Amino acid sequence: MDYRKFLGRMESMVLPYLGGGTVDSASRRLRVTTSVSPGWWRFDVKGRDATPREPAGPEGLEALPRVRGHVWAGRLVHEGAVAEPLELTPEEEPPRLAPVSARRWHDGSLLFEGVEFETEAEDAARRALEEGHALSGIRGVSAPLRAAFGYALLGQASQELGIRFVPAEVRGRILAVAEGGRASAEECLRHLRQERDVQATRARLAHERAVSAARVAEARQRAVDLTAQHLRRVGQQADSEHRAREALVNAGARPLDLRRLEGNRLEVTYAFMGERFISMVAGDSLQVLDAGICLAGADREVTLDSLPSVIREAIETDVLVVTRHA
């Protein structure tokens, strides 16, 4: 059979477009040829290219795993107090803490499906949130609703105290926050700030040492022929940037941005497990200089290719503390 005649075949697919340059089908990732707004679109697919033709209604959701939880700040809070981004929500936002169902798309994204029937627990939780009370004593509150309430409390306290957080940092303490109310939320955020201050001091000292060492190295390099040095540096920079991106992709992270710094350092921004992280690494060895999370001063014992697994362990054991925000 001559398979070449199928290579130019055009297919029509209805897929969820979440932004960026690609869209995922059940079997492969496709390049989007024309920029459009996020939503459900009918695509003309030819080879690896997908051209959006017209907006469409959702298709194929019933065959996907369903995830139920409660909404908070554009996320779905479900079992295990996990708060994941909820994609393609309607223009009219669901009520705060509303019970919502979503479907797990082939790339792992959670796609909004619909608002489910509410009970008295959601209304009681909203009143408690408005009045700054805790959830203790309120009956019928599920674990996901309790967690969503805790995140909402932290969100209110975060705005007033000016202390940012990401859900993975506080997940292990979120049910205690829900039970303790506003005072517990503020205590949680202040503890998080204290941990960041400690890590920031360590990072500053490490940075000063790195800059000092880099200046010594640069002074020695000035004795080398400038033309040869320039050509070598261009090649090394291109190679280190490529290796940094490749290390992140192989570790399951998605590179977002890369910036060169003085002293042959790289600042890499990447997405992993639903969050964004910024880390600083050595350009030649990809040794971590500042992980962007609290590693108790052990940053230099990690390399960029192993850092995502360290972040995963910190999230799964509820000890994540982010020190550099993307």
Results as ranks from 00 to 15, higher is better:
residue 206 A to Q: 12
residue 245 R to D: 14
residue 248 L to N: 09
residue 206 A to H: 10
residue 166 V to E: 14
residue 231 L to N: 06
residue 195 E to S: 11
residue 230 H to F: 12
residue 217 A to G: 15
residue 172 G to C: 05
residue 235 G to M: 03
residue 226 L to Y: 00
residue 225 D to V: 01
residue 212 S to W: 07
residue 228 A to R: 05
residue 235 G to S: 04
residue 164 R to P: 09
residue 211 V to E: 15
residue 190 R to S: 10
residue 230 H to Q: 12
residue 194 Q to S: 15
residue 223 A to S: 07
residue 155 G to F: 14
residue 211 V to Y: 10
residue 224 V to F: 03
residue 178 A to C: 09
residue 232 R to I: 00
residue 193 R to Q: 14
residue 247 A to Q: 05
residue 181 G to R: 00
residue 196 R to D: 15
residue 187 E to P: 00
residue 182 R to T: 15
residue 191 H to L: 12
residue 153 L to G: 08
residue 192 L to G: 11
residue 184 S to V: 01
residue 167 P to N: 06
residue 239 D to N: 09
residue 166 V to R: 10
residue 214 A to Q: 04
residue 184 S to I: 00
residue 155 G to T: 10
residue 210 A to Y: 11
residue 248 L to K: 02
residue 165 F to I: 00
residue 211 V to H: 08
residue 222 R to T: 05
residue 223 A to N: 04
residue 225 D to I: 01
residue 194 Q to Y: 12
residue 239 D to H: 06
residue 180 G to V: 05
residue 178 A to R: 03
residue 172 G to N: 02
residue 218 E to F: 01
residue 205 L to Q: 14
residue 236 Q to W: 08
residue 230 H to M: 05
residue 237 Q to A: 09
residue 210 A to W: 10
residue 200 A to K: 09
residue 175 L to C: 04
residue 198 V to E: 10
residue 165 F to Q: 06
residue 161 L to F: 11
residue 232 R to H: 03
residue 191 H to I: 00
residue 176 A to F: 10
residue 186 E to H: 08
residue 245 R to L: 04
residue 169 E to Y: 02
residue 195 E to N: 13
residue 158 S to H: 07
residue 207 H to P: 00
residue 169 E to R: 00
residue 182 R to C: 01
residue 184 S to T: 09
residue 228 A to G: 03
residue 196 R to C: 12
residue 159 Q to V: 10
residue 192 L to V: 06
residue 242 H to E: 14
residue 188 C to L: 10
residue 240 S to Y: 08
residue 228 A to L: 10
residue 218 E to A: 02
residue 174 I to N: 11
residue 156 Q to D: 11
residue 214 A to M: 05
residue 240 S to V: 04
residue 244 A to Y: 13
residue 216 V to L: 15
residue 240 S to E: 04
residue 222 R to H: 05
residue 201 T to F: 11
residue 166 V to Q: 08
residue 225 D to G: 01
residue 230 H to K: 07
residue 247 A to W: 04
residue 180 G to D: 14
residue 203 A to P: 05
residue 232 R to F: 03
residue 198 V to A: 07
residue 222 R to Q: 02
residue 177 V to K: 00
residue 190 R to F: 14
residue 217 A to D: 13
residue 188 C to D: 13
residue 225 D to Y: 01
residue 211 V to G: 02
residue 197 D to T: 13
residue 230 H to P: 01
residue 168 A to P: 10
residue 241 E to F: 14
residue 207 H to L: 12
residue 176 A to I: 02
residue 233 R to D: 12
residue 233 R to L: 08
residue 185 A to L: 04
residue 182 R to Q: 09
residue 227 T to E: 04
residue 177 V to C: 09
residue 203 A to V: 07
residue 158 S to N: 12
residue 221 Q to V: 00
residue 209 R to D: 15
residue 212 S to C: 07
residue 164 R to C: 10
residue 213 A to H: 05
residue 188 C to G: 05
residue 230 H to Y: 07
residue 216 V to P: 01
residue 191 H to R: 12
residue 244 A to F: 10
residue 190 R to V: 15
residue 195 E to W: 09
residue 181 G to W: 03
residue 208 E to I: 07
residue 159 Q to C: 07
residue 214 A to H: 06
residue 227 T to I: 01
residue 242 H to S: 11
residue 222 R to S: 05
residue 160 E to T: 15
residue 185 A to C: 03
residue 201 T to C: 07
residue 162 G to N: 08
